Simulated assay, not measured.
Amino acid sequence: MNDSFFVDTKKVAKQASGLGEFMMIECDSGNLLVTGQFVLNIMPEQFFSVRCKLEIPRLGVWYFQTKDGPMKSERQPGLKEWEDRYNFWLDNAEKKRIINTRIELGGCNLYTDGVTYKAIKQERLGMLQQADELALSGSMIVIDGMHVIAPVTDNVWKNNKWLCRLSGMDIED
Rank of each mutant, 00 (worst) to 15 (best):
I171V: 05
M71Q: 15
M1P: 15
V12C: 06
D28W: 06
V61N: 05
N109P: 01
K10W: 10
L19A: 10
I42D: 14
P57A: 07
G78T: 10
W82P: 06
L19S: 13
K158I: 08
C52P: 01
E74M: 11
R85H: 14
M140E: 14
R51H: 03
R51P: 01
K67P: 11
G106W: 02
Q76I: 11
V12Q: 10
S137G: 06
Q46N: 12
F88V: 08
S29L: 08
W89A: 14
F38D: 02
F88D: 13
M127I: 02
G126N: 13
K11L: 15
T101M: 04
R97M: 12
E81F: 07
I25N: 06
E55G: 07
E55V: 07
F64Q: 08
G114D: 10
Q65F: 05
L128N: 10
A16I: 02
Q76G: 03
I141H: 09
V34R: 03
K11E: 15
G30P: 05
D91P: 12
E83Q: 08
D132G: 12
G60Y: 02
A119W: 01
F88S: 06
A119Y: 00
M146K: 15
D91R: 15
D8T: 11
L59M: 06
F22H: 04
N2F: 15
D3P: 05
D144E: 09
D154W: 00
G78D: 10
L166I: 07
K72I: 13
T66L: 09
F6K: 15
D132P: 07
D91H: 15
W62D: 05
Y117G: 06
L32Y: 02
G114L: 11
D170K: 09
N100F: 12
L110S: 03
D68M: 13
C164S: 06
S139I: 07
Q122C: 09
W62L: 08
A150W: 00
R165W: 04
T116E: 05
Q37Y: 04
G107Q: 07
N92A: 00
G145V: 14
L105K: 10
L54R: 00
K161Q: 08
M169P: 01
E83A: 04
G168T: 04
N92Y: 09
K158S: 03
E21V: 01
F48Y: 11
L128M: 13
G20T: 05
K53A: 10
V152R: 06
T66G: 11
P77E: 07
G60I: 12
L40D: 06
R124G: 00
I171K: 08
G138C: 10
E83S: 09
G145Q: 12
K10F: 09
Y86M: 10
N109I: 04
A16H: 06
G168M: 02
S49R: 11
Q65E: 09
K96S: 14
A93M: 13
D84V: 13
S137I: 12
V50G: 05
G69P: 07
F6S: 14
E26Q: 13
N160R: 08
L136G: 09
G107W: 00
D154C: 01
M23H: 04
M127C: 07
K161W: 03
